[in-house]
Design a binder for these strands. Structure first.
Length: 200
DNA sequence: CCAGACGTTGTT
DNA sequence: GTCTGG
DNA sequence: CCAGACGTTGTT
DNA sequence: GTCTGG
């Protein structure tokens, strides 16, 4: 679930919507694992920023990058898995999107569905990020999106959906002091009616 | 204490 | 980075 | 995530 | 089947 989403927004428009500075990025209606796009995170200086990161988490301790990009993390186990537990504690992120996609049907002849807010507002996914040494002195920033069980809007299409946070939950998710148990409680299915679905 | 290990998810 | 095993 | 590509060798 | 590109 959630291996593709829509971030086809002009950076200036996104900046106005978020109330944050946004670096230039490629507005992509079919943003895919391995692509680089805008992510909201709290820097070492405590400031909330929008930074460009690559989709597919790579923990700092991994010698080799994963063979497949780790573009999702299960909310149910994110606090325990070696892959995610460090980031869950210290590197939580918010991922803006206009919509996400899911598919039904058989490989080669799948039907693509687009999930977005009925009012056109942004979806904000719960995410995690990491900074990994690249060997050339640079840091490779990567991120992943949490998934959970589907709400009624999505259940007919898939058995997972991304964790979508409301305004209040977004603030808590980025709070370095937030209680882990409370964070896990936030990483739940969005209320029914949050999403509309269209053929894509 | 140190040394060494440690992959996810979604899909079929 | 964090946990486990010794 | 999905869609689409994916060829070797010997010879000129 | 598996890898690459999007």
């Amino acid at each position: 679930m959630c291996g593709r989403y829509d971030i086809e927004i002009d950076p200036k428009t996104l900046s106005a919507m978020l109330g944050l500075e946004v670096p230039d990025f490629i507005a992509d209606a079919d943003f895919s694992p391995g692509d680089t796009g805008p992510v909201i995170a709290v820097g070492a200086d405590g400031q909330t920023k929008v930074v460009l990161m690559r989709w597919g988490l790579e923990p700092s301790w991994m010698k080799e990058k994963p063979t497949r990009p780790m573009f999702n993390a299960r909310a149910e186990t994110v606090a325990e898995k070696p892959m995610f537990r460090s980031a869950f504690r210290k590197k939580r992120a918010l991922v803006p999107a206009r919509a996400f996609y899911e598919w039904t049907g058989k490989p080669g002849s799948k039907t693509k569905w687009r999930f977005s807010r009925p009012n056109g507002n942004l979806l904000i996914f719960a995410g995690l990020w990491e900074a990994r040494d690249r060997g050339d002195g640079q840091k490779q920033l990567t991120f992943t999106i949490l998934t959970t069980t589907p709400n009624a809007d999505a259940a007919d299409y898939h058995d997972r959906m991304p964790v979508i946070l409301d305004d209040n939950a977004q603030k808590i998710w980025l709070d370095p002091e937030a209680d882990p148990q409370f964070l896990l409680a936030l990483a739940a299915p969005a209320p029914d009616g949050t999403l509309k679905v269209d053929a894509a």
